[in-house]
């Protein structure tokens, strides 16, 4: 079953001199439980594509359906709510809330969703354990390494039980050991909990782990390979 259906998606920036087609007519289906890498050189449109799918950037044309819901037909307030309940985000530069501890960062999103305190505490513990940070729960981001911060970000992305996780170059700022570690965790969660992961990357190690690799260039799909 398709979690995400993308139909004739365009994002065109009208510059004063040149028109930039960041996403230029993409059609794509992502099935539940996929572990998909969007690859391509810098400026190929990977991040823009993820932003369109994640409901952060409005497409010039085309439609994005998540579980049959036309994402861009939603009004601004509903769209934020939709993101909160359906999409998990992992950013290149972690983007944790610096004044909250690892535990609070993960809990925060569940609080936005209105979870009970008891359930929040249990799930936070489970998730931080799953990403190997059970002993760093009370540390603030500044006290964690880049790899640890990104693992907290993964736990946060999963906290809301999203339909899929969008990860924009999640390993770009990590060393090889942290990258390996993070990929193992994401792969394990994907296999054991059937969580759909879509990540943009040009990191060969990530591409190697992905079971589906979609290559984008100049805003178009160049290749779509399933291993």
């Amino acid at each position: 079953m398709s979690v995400i259906e993308i139909k004739n998606l365009y994002k065109i920036y009208d510059g004063s001199e040149v028109e930039v087609r960041a996403v230029n007519g993409i059609n794509l289906n992502i099935e539940e439980g996929e572990f998909t890498a969007i690859v391509g050189p810098s400026g190929s449109g990977k991040t823009t594509f993820l932003n369109l799918v994640g409901g952060l950037d409005k497409p010039t044309d085309g439609k994005v359906f998540v579980d049959g819901i036309d994402v861009w037909s939603l009004k601004s307030r509903k769209l934020i709510d939709f993101r909160l309940h359906n999409i998990g985000f992992v950013f290149q530069s972690y983007n944790l809330i610096p004044v909250l501890t690892a535990k609070e960062n993960v809990e925060f999103i569940m609080q936005l969703q209105g979870w009970s305190r008891k359930d929040r505490i249990k799930r936070t513990g489970d998730l931080l354990k799953a990403v190997g940070l059970a002993d760093r729960m009370d540390s603030r981001p500044a006290k964690l390494s880049g790899g640890q911060q990104q693992r907290v970000a993964v736990a946060r992305a999963l906290a809301s039980k999203p339909k899929f996780v969008l990860a924009d170059e999640p390993t770009a700022n990590l060393d090889s050991k942290s990258t390996e570690n993070l990929l193992d965790i994401m792969e394990k969660l994907n296999q054991e909990e059937k969580i759909t992961f879509i990540f943009s990357t040009h990191d060969a190690r990530v591409i190697k782990k992905a079971r589906r690799v979609i290559t984008i260039e100049d805003g178009r799909i160049l290749k779509d390979e399933t291993k």
Binding site: G54, R83, L84, H85, F89, N95, Q113
Partner: peptide, 12 residues
């Protein structure tokens, strides 16, 4: 940071 909060679902 505020953009990130709005992205992950913190409403206005």
């Amino acid at each position: 940071e505020i953009g990130m909060l709005m992205a992950i679902g913190m409403n206005r």
